[in-house]
Nucleic acid binder design. Structure first.
Length: 220
DNA sequence: GACCAGGCACATC
DNA sequence: GATGTGCATGGT
């Protein structure tokens, strides 16, 4: 388990290097939730195209999204990949959102966090990362989002093994820091940023803002 | 032309 | 419970 001060030092180094990330790129909480599903195992640039299509078609709206036929929706979100699967997942989620909360984000936000997380996980197509992304980035709850980059980072820095579970990784951050949604928000965004950066294939690349923390010979 | 990208569900053992 | 596989486009 990494000491909190190490993680904080990472965050500060990343923040200095990249600046504040101002995540999530989405104009409304609903758009953020849609993006969270579309981005599953997909580069964000492709999700942007899909969201632009939805906007152009007036489909960034729960009722319309729920009503459209699945093949048309799949065509609209095609650039995001897995379009048939994601069309079903999106509609399943949106229908649940309408049934449970009348399409009202505030009603969703009013549900206690652990309960909301459980309910989200019951929706087909929403796993831990997507649920936590919705809780943090759409609803503003202090929930740390773990992703493949987070795991890789902690693993390469020798803090966890490859077998570490999602919940273990999440707990590392949530127990190290007080619940602060804007801090969790930017920290996760910074981790994604450094994970995406080109130096990931080169051990201790000169450009990596975390190179001074790395055990020698490892990748960022 | 591999390989990867802000995962998840489901089948099988 | 763990492990493997399908889903699919677009950039490097």
């Amino acid at each position: 388990m990494p000491p909190a001060r190490s993680l904080l030092a990472y965050y500060k180094a990343l923040r200095r290097h990249y600046g504040h990330q101002h995540w999530w790129p989405g104009e409304t909480p609903f758009e953020v939730m849609v993006g969270a599903i579309l981005t599953q195992n997909t580069a964000w640039i492709n999700v942007e195209k899909a969201i632009a299509n939805l906007k152009a078609l007036g489909l960034l709206d729960a009722a319309r999204l729920a009503a459209i036929d699945a093949p048309s929706l799949a065509t609209a979100i095609r650039p995001a990949g897995y379009f048939n699967q994601k069309a079903k997942r999106l509609q399943g989620f949106v229908r649940w959102f309408l049934e449970q909360f009348g399409g009202d984000v505030e009603r969703m936000r009013a549900v206690p966090i652990p309960r909301m997380r459980e309910e989200l996980l019951k929706v087909k197509g929403i796993g831990p990362e997507t649920a936590d992304s919705i809780l943090l980035y759409a609803l503003g709850h202090p929930v740390f989002v773990v992703d493949a980059y987070t795991h890789r980072l902690l693993q390469r820095h020798g803090f966890v093994g490859e077998e570490a579970s999602y919940d273990e990784l999440k707990e590392i951050f949530e127990s190290a820091f007080p619940p602060d949604a804007s801090f969790y928000n930017d920290f996760h965004a910074q981790i994604v940023n450094v994970g995406k950066d080109s130096c990931r294939t080169q051990p201790r690349c000169d450009k990596c803002p975390l190179r001074r923390f790395l055990p020698s010979g490892t990748k960022p």
